[in-house]
Design a protein around this nucleic acid. Structure first.
Ligand SMILES: O=c1ccn([C@H]2C[C@H](O)[C@@H](COP(=O)(O)OP(=O)(O)OP(=O)(O)O)O2)c(=O)[nH]1
Ligand SMILES: [Mg+2]
Length: 1205
DNA sequence: TAGCAGTATTG
DNA sequence: CAATAC
DNA sequence: GCTA
């Protein structure tokens, strides 16, 4: 049976492969080129191109791919006479029809002469500014066969060439055979509308009430896509639709045709029309690349291996960006924060073999490490700047990618590299947003532990939609992507690429240059019109595009610092940017200049009038590229050059008044993506983050903000409170703030946290360190271990910075007040016993009802954010049900482990099914021991088919927690003192063993003693609870109920009273244990204080022990997929238990004088109202938890008043 | 169907 | 204002 | 190109 399922799965895969293959063939056919023929022509072309270099260059200068002409040479001459002439392209939909259709139409079409007659010669866009057509002022058309727009008449809107980009498009369109109709005429077949305009504007402009139905109206993407794919693509695609175009998709007539002709693509991958097959144009590519390479003056700089600390490497390889989401009280908060941090910090570089890999890493020539920035695969660094950042170097090595990539990174490495290349392609021409989408998708793929090979799997992942999913499937099954093949080897691309890397030139300028026919930088220097900065940029192209070794960055920094100190020693300078992030090489030197208690005016005065002149005079500053002149300006960009050296370096100075330092540090430490994510996060919280501060009350109607409010930033008085480490200063208020904001809003505070941390912590931690990394790891650890997250975080940070003692101290300060309060409460409750006055019952019931609402809210949010794939949802369900149906001491750990194993088994099953990698290992297993593994797999497959289209997709959404960081992988240099070497692995081992031993000992002891003393039992139970509670907060409740109430130590009513109160108490929810411990000691010889203490220690110890222990070995563990997989299940189950808590509390929340046991809240509709109110206000009205609960209390009292009065 | 970070400098 | 940059 |  299982075998069958496997077989069928395999068969499906096979089918897919053949399907793609046939698709290929089909496309090839449509190109009139049978496969073998294609290959042959390729060869021919190669030769041809070798023999006619001159020809090529000329072609290039016309701004279109040489390939055009090349292809033409070899391509069937038959093409020559069949010219489109689609003046009256039949069915109007012809334009919408995919390539093949058009081609056939073409053949039977009217001869081109007619067209020409009918359609006046095209108008010629005048290229912007300096752009002069080299040859005879006429646009050079591509060879006829390539003139995909032949017979088409374009009307642009706006129909002028003022905008260079548009002018560019016009030219291109003309080169490819279209005409530009300067005036509106019936002959127009296509209207190309700029993105900015909508349909209404267009129709108004044309004074047509409704457009001719055969007229094709598309946005500016259309011509470029057509050109990119060398074919007429379906203009109906959404991405070509303009704003406000709500017209029905297709005319009736068109529908049929499109449907028929594009069936294949639709069905397959919705590949956008894949155009001609790659090969058609392959020939020129060799030439191009050579040429480009030489023209590029690429400095092939060898990267300084910059052997950062060795041990550092070992320790941080990687980081799995994606920690299992752990439910935590501050749901969004930790998650989002974590996400942002991750994003910013590099997470996952996961060498398979850490040690071995490290050694060779910097230059490891084989590994297109898929990664960017500082790790060019071969020792050569194609220069690249920020803009080019995502670019890959291995275009040429695609064939090799598979292997190297596959082995060097996650299971989806291959897919990722290819997607990267797609992104690169779009990066150049396409819209930035698409790139953003690709980046995000790549990010989630990277974090995904399991190979994604089907559309459905992919679809289930966040940031991956229909279209990317299709692409992913294609890549996974064929290992390539047709579109990419088409796009590659676009000859001008290389040049464009080169041009775009000159400082001061971007896409627009570079395109312009290319269109003018420039091919080399030198040529630009002579002939093109350049801005001042661009000239410098070209003069120092190599300089500016080389990465700067870390040491040199520091030297530049010191140089500036010294000069500054000569002027005024109170100035501080911090080298930011990638340097501060710990990169081993930087693209520039980012200097942040500040001075305590100084205004920006003063800073500016000093820097601009003294520092810069001085440095310039001394020959250090050699160029000024952008300088502030305005009063509020605060930055200076230029170039510097160390004495005795000749390479110029880009240097940026940022002047920062002291009260903006925190925000400025965030900004300048960056990683641009991190910044963008932080800012996005801020905006979702109704705030605004920029380099000066964090503002709130930011309204965004359609575009802008209104209220800017005081900076929430500054560290302020929290310092007074805690004399501990700076970290404590930074962190505690955050958690405090977090509390106030309730457990649903960490967003603000997390931003706050960042700022405060930068401000207080960093300046003294010296420059040049990456401080985020360790924190990020701490978060990961705290999330992945049981116990209260925030508490562990606090403890760890302090321990890290100031030693164990400080860690404990901080922990006590954080949790003790609440614990004492709870203890006090327990005494009160114990005394009062049954004698509560009526209003108190009402109050408590109100609190309970509201708490239920809040917990339900938490449960829902957790479920939504942390659990997203089928399996874990199932686990949540199981957990919830299982928790409701039964509960016992042993039960929860078993459930947890079971859930962990389930996800583990699932992941393995999936791996096995789709990844050839694991197959053998598992196969071996299944043959000898068919049961377990095999069965698991079988279930998978069945589930999959049964559920139709939505198979596993593991560990998807990661919520915000994991993946914001799409690009992250700068190697980092982290100073030893800030690393997580807090514990060596020996220490770790000891701590972990201790935690485990204690657990075992307690349980054994307790079960062995016939009458275990209450104290021991309390401690044992809570210790056990502390060991298995992941995520704290709500999760703690059902467990404590079982472990304390079910034992009969504390009454249900008292439990509820405590629960209601703890919600409004500061400190961790785990303090609830103190209360319970105290009460549990009642009626035994044990003093209640001891009971409380035991409970306190018992509940906190395991978490602290484990997380402390893990710190030393975390970096090794995190890379383990199985661990992530396991934790995923555990966490999901924990979420399920939260639902259980909702149910149980609901059943018992109604306390009154008549009953000693709580009644269901449903017994009086009012409590339902209260619960609903707290849920709704918490969820949709942004009311924080504490407030919602208090509101519940008030409502309870109101009820009492009404009922009794 | 709009949104995707938020600014600063240049020409 | 658009382009480029951080 | 994804999300809401
Ligand atoms: O679009 C951007 C670009 C940069 N920055 C911030 C973050 C970045 O860290 C800092 C410095 O920019 P730079 O271009 O120098 O990047 P970097 O992070 O220092 O990398 P490198 O200089 O190594 O290229 O400015 C942004 O906020 N947005
Ligand atoms: Mg930099």
């Amino acid at each position: 049976m299982s075998i069958m399922s496997v077989a069928s799965a395999e068969k499906m895969l096979q089918e897919k492969r053949t399907f793609y293959a046939s698709l290929d063939r089909a496309l090839a056919d449509s190109d009139d080129e049978p496969d073998p023929g294609r290959t042959a022509s390729v060869k021919a072309l190669r030769n041809a191109s070798k023999h006619h270099p001159g020809h090529h260059s000329r072609e290039v200068s016309s701004g279109l791919p040489r390939s055009a002409s090349d292809t033409n040479l070899v391509k069937e001459p038959s093409r020559r006479f069949n010219d489109p002439a689609q003046v009256e392209r039949p069915e109007t939909s012809s334009g919408r029809a995919p390539p093949r259709l058009i081609k056939s139409a073409t053949i039977t079409g009217v001869p081109s002469e007619i067209v020409t007659l009918a359609a006046p010669v095209t108008a010629i866009p005048k290229m912007p500014k300096s752009m002069k057509r080299k040859r005879d002022g006429t646009t050079q058309l591509v060879p006829e066969a390539q003139q995909i727009f032949k017979g088409m008449h374009f009307y642009f809107f706006p129909n002028d060439d003022k905008n260079p980009a548009r002018a560019m498009r016009m030219m291109k369109a003309i080169e490819f055979g279209a005409t530009w109709q300067k005036n509106w005429a019936p002959i127009v077949t296509h209207v190309i509308v700029d993105k900015l305009y909508d349909l209404a504007t267009l129709t108004k402009h044309l004074e047509l009430s409704n457009l001719p139905h055969q007229l094709i109206v598309v946005n500016e993407n259309y011509p470029s896509d057509c050109i990119a794919f060398r074919t007429i693509v379906n203009p109906q695609q959404k991405r070509f639709r303009l704003k406000g175009d709500v017209r029905p998709e297709l005319t009736k007539l068109g529908t049929a045709m499109v449907a028929a002709s594009s069936a294949e693509q639709q069905k397959s991958l919705e590949l956008k029309p894949a155009g001609r097959s790659v090969m058609a144009r392959a020939p020129e590519s060799p030439k191009t690349t050579d040429e480009a390479a030489s023209s590029q003056r690429v400095t092939v700089t060898r990267i300084e291996p910059m052997p950062p600390v060795r041990d550092d490497r070992n320790d941080r390889p990687a980081t799995c960006a994606t920690e299992p989401q752990v439910p935590a009280p501050n749901i969004d908060s930790t998650a989002e924060f974590d996400a942002a941090v991750r994003q910013a910090k590099d997470l996952q570089y996961v060498p398979l073999d850490e040690e071995g890999e490290d050694a060779s890493r910097p230059t490891s020539s084989e590994g297109p490490a898929t990664d960017d920035e500082e790790e060019p695969p071969t020792g050569l660094i194609p220069l690249q700047k920020r803009k080019a950042k995502y670019q890959n170097f291995q275009d040429k090595f695609q064939c090799m990618q598979k292997h190297s990539a596959e082995s060097s990174d996650g299971p989806n490495a291959t897919t990722i590299t290819i997607l990267q290349q797609m992104a690169d392609y779009y990066g150049k021409t396409g819209d930035e947003w698409r790139i953003r989408a690709y980046r995000k998708a790549i990010g989630t793929l990277r974090n995904h532990p399991v190979k994604i090979s089907t559309r459905e799997e992919a679809l289930a992942l966040p940031q991956i939609g229909e279209r990317l999913a299709c692409k992913i499937e294609e890549i996974a099954t064929t290992n390539r992507l047709r579109r990419l093949d088409n796009v590659k080897a676009e000859p001008n691309d290389q040049i464009l690429q080169t041009f775009m890397q000159v400082y001061g030139a971007g896409l627009a300028k570079a395109s312009e240059w290319v269109a003018q026919g420039h091919k080399t930088l030198d040529e630009l220097l002579e002939k093109a019109c350049l801005s001042e900065n661009q000239r410098i940029g070209i003069d120092h192209y190599e300089d500016f595009n080389s990465r700067i070794p870390r040491a040199e960055v520091a030297q530049h920094g010191n140089f500036v610092r010294q000069a500054l100190h000569n002027i005024d020693p109170a100035f501080e300078i911090i080298v930011g940017g990638s340097y501060r992030r710990g990169a081993s090489t930087s693209g520039d030197i980012d200097c942040l200049i500040t001075r305590p208690d100084t205004t920006s005016a003063h800073l500016r005065a000093v820097v601009l009038e003294q520092l810069i002149p001085t440095l310039t005079a001394s020959g250090f500053l050699v160029a000024s590229l952008a300088a502030t002149h305005k009063d509020d300006g605060c930055k200076w960009h230029g170039a510097s050059c160390l004495p005795g050296r000749k390479t110029w370096r880009r240097i940026d100075l940022l002047l920062v008044p002291s009260d903006e330092l925190g925000a400025a540090l965030i900004y300048f430490t960056g990683n641009d993506i991190f910044n963008r994510n932080m800012r996005l996060l801020a905006s979702t919280k109704g705030m605004r983050l920029n380099q000066r501060g964090l503002y709130k009350g930011c309204l965004r109607g359609h575009g802008r903000k209104k209220l800017s409010e005081g900076t929430l930033v500054e560290g302020r008085d929290e310092k007074r409170i805690f004399e501990l480490s700076k970290a404590a200063e930074a962190v505690l208020p955050v958690f405090a703030a977090n509390w106030h904001l309730g457990f649903t809003a960490f967003g603000g505070p997390s931003v706050h946290f960042q700022i405060v941390r930068h401000r207080n912590l960093l300046p003294e931690e010296t420059i040049g360190i990456n401080q985020k990394q360790p924190y990020q790891e701490l978060f990961a650890i705290c999330q992945a271990t049981p116990g209260p997250g925030s508490t562990k975080m606090l403890f760890s940070i302090n321990a890290l910075h100031s030693g164990w003692l400080a860690g404990h101290l901080a922990f006590l300060i954080w949790s003790l007040p609440g614990a004492l309060g709870m203890y006090g409460l327990s005494l009160g409750v114990a005394r009062i016993d049954q004698l509560l006055p009526g209003p108190v019952y009402a109050l408590l019931t109100g609190l309970n009802a509201a708490t239920v609402g809040i917990i339900a809210l938490a449960a829902v949010q957790l479920a939504e954010k942390a659990v997203t794939d089928r399996l874990t949802r199932g686990v949540v369900l199981v957990g919830g049900c299982a928790g409701m149906l039964y509960s016992a001491l042993w039960y929860f750990p078993v459930l947890m482990v079971g859930a962990g194993l389930a996800t583990l088994g699932w992941d393995f099953g999936v791996l096995q099914r789709s990844g050839e990698v694991v197959r053998r290992a598992l196969g071996r297993r299944s043959s000898s021991e068919p049961s377990a593994q095999e069965r698991a797999r079988e279930v998978d497959v069945e589930l999959q088919t049964a559920s139709g289209n939505e198979p596993p997709a593991l560990q998807a959404k990661e919520g915000s927690s994991s993946n914001i960081l799409e690009r992250d992988d700068e190697p980092r240099i982290v100073p030893a003192h800030i690393q997580l070497d807090l514990s060596s692995w020996q220490t770790s081992l000891i701590l972990l063993t201790l935690a485990l031993a204690l657990l075992v000992a307690l349980l054994v002891l307790r079960s062995q003693l016939p009458h275990p003393p209450r104290g021991l039992s309390i401690f044992a139970n809570l210790y056990l609870g502390g060991t298995i509670i992941f995520g704290g907060g709500p999760v703690v409740i059902p467990l404590l109920r079982t472990y304390i109430v079910a034992e009969g130590w504390v009454s249900s009513r008292d439990f509820l009273i405590g629960l209601a109160v703890i919600q409004a108490f500061p400190g961790p929810n785990f303090n609830f244990a103190v209360y319970l411990g105290s009460l549990a000691a009642l009626g035994t010889p044990l003093p209640s204080a001891v009971g409380a203490l035991l409970a306190f220690v018992g509940i906190f110890a395991p978490g602290i022990l484990i997380s402390a222990g893990l710190m030393g070995v975390w970096s090794r563990l995190r890379a383990q997929r199985w661990l992530k997989s396991f934790l995923r299940g555990v966490n999901a189950l924990a979420v399920g238990l939260v639902f259980t808590a909702v149910y149980r509390l609901w059943q018992l929340g109604y306390i009154d004088a008549q009953h000693s046991v709580g009644q269901p809240l449903g017994s009086d509709p009012w409590w339902v109202v209260v619960t609903a109110t707290s849920f709704v206000t918490g969820r949709w009205f942004g009311l924080n938890a504490a407030a919602a609960i208090l509101l519940g209390g008030v409502m309870g009292l109101v009820w009492y008043g009404i009922v009794t009065g």
